[in-house]
Amino acid sequence: MPKSWFLRIGLVTGLLFLYLPILLLVILSFNANRSVAVWSGFSFHWYRELFNDQQLLSAAWLSVQVAFVSATFAVVLGTLAGLMLARFGAFRGRALFSGMVSAPLVMPEVILGLSLLLLFVSLEQLTGWPEGRGMLTIILSHITFTMAFVTVVVQSRLVSMDASLEEAAMDLGARPAKVFFVITLPIIAPAIVSGWLLAFTLSLDDLVITSFVSGPGSTTLPQVVFSSVRLGLSPKINALATIVVAIVAVGIIIAGIYNARQERMRQLDEKMAAQG
């Protein structure tokens, strides 16, 4: 904790601001009453309702499938793009490429959604592909906007990593492809895993772009959530929020334990190396 009182108060205020709303949703998800202000006893009522909502469940399943496929492709493309930016030096068209990679990070989603939809419509007119809008167009769009985030994560890992290992392997005669798979890939693997998880979460959460490029019969979870909260409070969503928070918390704890173990092993390795 910082020493100054002012900073402590600032920090605590900021964290409360970030966490109170989330905490509130978790508490309310167990409230038997609809109202936010009245607590009328502990209940799993909203969870039962959540799990009886077929529309919501099938939307959630579609979202998970879309997120899984999108994240996987985004990781491949994002890793290649990160490699280009971190290792290829000044290739022709680099400025355009880095512009195209980083623009989706800040570009308003309504613009991305509209432009992708118009692309799909025009492509269909010209070539007959993609036929209509649905899961395929959602996945293509999600790959496009999530790969930017993967690129950033992978690129920053590549830039900060020690390149002398790659150089040593090259000097010993390894082909670039081999260097990549044997040396670079294992070192940047944590960044790739992070990138995948990030792309998965972003895809799972996206409403605006999806709304533009989805068709009838392909409704994702955020679309269902949005249409129900647009009309005001909907306690089922509190239950959904609590489940999301629980999954994230478990994931974080597992990652924390894994990291702590890695750190201990590293320290042990260092001690061994120092001794001998």
Binding site: A37, T201, V229, L233, I237
Partner: peptide, 25 residues
């Protein structure tokens, strides 16, 4: 702790404020 909210849904975090800010909130 700062990054963690990213991993929960953006939509749901916005929705939380409806319950806080409404007239009977």
């Amino acid at each position: 702790l700062i990054i963690l909210p990213f991993w929960t849904s953006f939509l749901i975090r916005v929705y939380a404020w409806i319950g806080i800010l409404s007239d009977t909130g």
